[in-house]
Every structure is written in structure tokens, then in C-alpha cells.
């Protein structure tokens, strides 16, 4: 793999369980990417600042607390406000199926639940890296359809 992408993996909100985020971070590292992990309990602003300062192309958000419906769209909006519309956002954790449509509409391009093979996440990242429509600021509502 020649292509090295910079990816921020972050845990917004108050849940204190980051095994999933760490597994994803590790899988992306093993696929050859540079992964910046922010640690637990970050605010949307802290996460967006990290994405900006680290010049990340991707932001992976993990939430298990049920607050994803508030936090993920807030982060997407803040990214657009900061002029970071080309950043690709994906999510994971405990996200009920019924919530997917709203998150997709907010700009989250893929949602990975428990049991997702890490290969799927790697495939998503490679696919989305070349798509202008994958940025959180892009119109059209592109959503990853699987490998």
C-alpha cells in the first residue's frame, strides 16, 4: 500500500469504553495509514480542532452512549463551518438502524456496527479517498454502499 492517509479516530461524549475505537485505529494502522487517536470524552470542538491541526482526511467517530444523534451532526456542522468540508466522516459503535438515515443526512458517509470486519472499514476508506462527493461538505448525500 503506497497511499498513506491521515485519519483521526475520536470518541465524543461521555462514554468511557474505547475498545472498538482502538480496534478500528489499529486496523487502519495495519492497513498502512497514519492514525491519530484523541482519547476519551472529547468535545465536538476539540475533535474538529484536532482534525484541522493534524490535517486529517478522515474522521472516525465512535459512540456507545446513545448521544450520537446529537454529537455526530454537531461535529459535521462544525467541520463545515471551519472550512473542512473535504474531510470524510464515518461512525461506529452502538447506532440503531433507525438512526442511520439522519446521520447520513448530516454527512456521516458510513456507519459500522459491532461485528463489522475491519476489512470493510479499510475498503471504505480507500473508496472514499478518491470521491469528491464523500467530503462532509459535499452535497448529494453520498453514502458508502459496501465493498
Amino acid at each position: 500500500m503506497d497511499r498513506v492517509l491521515r485519519i483521526v479516530v475520536a470518541k465524543p461524549g461521555l462514554d468511557g469504553h474505547d475498545r472498538g475505537a482502538k480496534v478500528v485505529a489499529r486496523a487502519l494502522r495495519d492497513a498502512g495509514h497514519e492514525v491519530i487517536y484523541t482519547g476519551l470524552r472529547r468535545t465536538p470542538k476539540q475533535i474538529v480542532d484536532a482534525v484541522r491541526d493534524e490535517d486529517a482526511r478522515f474522521l472516525g467517530l465512535s459512540s456507545l452512549s446513545g448521544a450520537h444523534g446529537h454529537l455526530f451532526p454537531t461535529i459535521c456542522a462544525l467541520l463545515r463551518e471551519e472550512g473542512l468540508g473535504d474531510v470524510v466522516v464515518f461512525g461506529g459503535g452502538i447506532i440503531p438502524d433507525d438512526d442511520h438515515a439522519d446521520l447520513h443526512a448530516a454527512g456521516v458517509r458510513a456507519i459500522f456496527g459491532p461485528g463489522t470486519p475491519t476489512g470493510d472499514i479499510n475498503a471504505f476508506v480507500l473508496d472514499a479517498a478518491d470521491r469528491e462527493e464523500a467530503g462532509v461538505g459535499a452535497a448529494g448525500g453520498w453514502v458508502w454502499q459496501g465493498a
Binding site: L28, R29, D30, G32, E34, V35, T38
Partner: peptide, 13 residues
């Protein structure tokens, strides 16, 4: 990583 060339950067934590 010398194997994959990837890196896990955790200093911000």
C-alpha cells in the same frame, strides 16, 4: 510500523 508503514499516533491523549 515497519510491517505496514502505518502508525498509531497517540500523543494527544
Amino acid at each position: 510500523s515497519s510491517l505496514s508503514g502505518g502508525a498509531l499516533l497517540g500523543d494527544r491523549i
